[in-house]
Design a protein around this nucleic acid. Structure first.
Lengths: 116, 116
DNA sequence: ACGAATTAAATGCATATACATCTAATGTGT
DNA sequence: ACACATTAGATGTATATGCATTTAATTCGT
């Protein structure tokens, strides 16, 4: 139970610090998570629901998050060839570069929160 | 770093389960936290900023959260006698009863998430 | 093969939250 | 004592998110 309080405190501290610091890269924590997931897995394409699962966000939240990333040209959407209801989400070179640039910040924030 | 992922996963699971289950008591997780804090500390009155700190929420979020709780008659606000900028927040009997009723649910959710 | 059920993603809508600002009250320096 | 800075809390506004619904496409049962 104290564990839950501790988890809440650490989560709040880390999340808000990530918001503050990642803003320098024009990213929010959720946007970072999506891009990071894509780079880490290294696939060409991702389905929206897969990204929603990876980020613990709802399908609708991901739909809009991807729209934001697309507007910023960090990802692009294309039709899924084997199921035309779906879309493929692909990270762009800009998106990849943005993520790589932001990773040290992300890592530093987490180290600061968890060590300190 | 896997620790951070794990924390995010546990937080998301617990928080959404709390939203779902506490809804049966007409409470959100944040409302529960505020009431729980007040009952646990056992003081008569609380200042808004103190509650904001306790819940990792902003002052403005707390102002509105308290307004919701007041509308539901779970707390009441009164003037702070020694600093007329401030307000005193006090839990009502209804608020106390509501919290006590919700506590087993809260505890059960956390046990389910952290044991399972 | 066709209609019903299901599924993927987008969108309308409601809401919780943060930031900036506002108002009122308190504190401070000279 | 008076002007200025600071502080407490409320509120305008913007936004991210979730739920419910919508639309389009697929799957399934007969």
């Amino acid at each position: 139970m104290g564990a839950w309080r501790d988890l809440l405190a650490k989560h709040a501290a880390a999340w808000s610090a990530l918001e503050r610091e990642l803003d320098k890269h024009d990213l929010g924590p959720s946007e970072f998570e999506v891009l990071d997931y894509m780079v880490e897995r290294g696939q060409d394409n991702y389905r929206v629901q897969e990204l929603a699962d990876a980020t613990h966000l709802s399908q609708s939240a991901l739909s809009r998050l991807i729209a934001r990333l697309e507007r910023a040209e960090l990802v692009c959407r294309s039709m899924c060839d084997f199921d035309r209801r779906g879309v493929f989400v692909r990270i762009t070179d800009q998106g990849h570069a943005r993520l790589i640039a932001a990773r040290p910040t992300h890592r530093a924030v987490l180290e600061a929160v968890f060590d300190g």
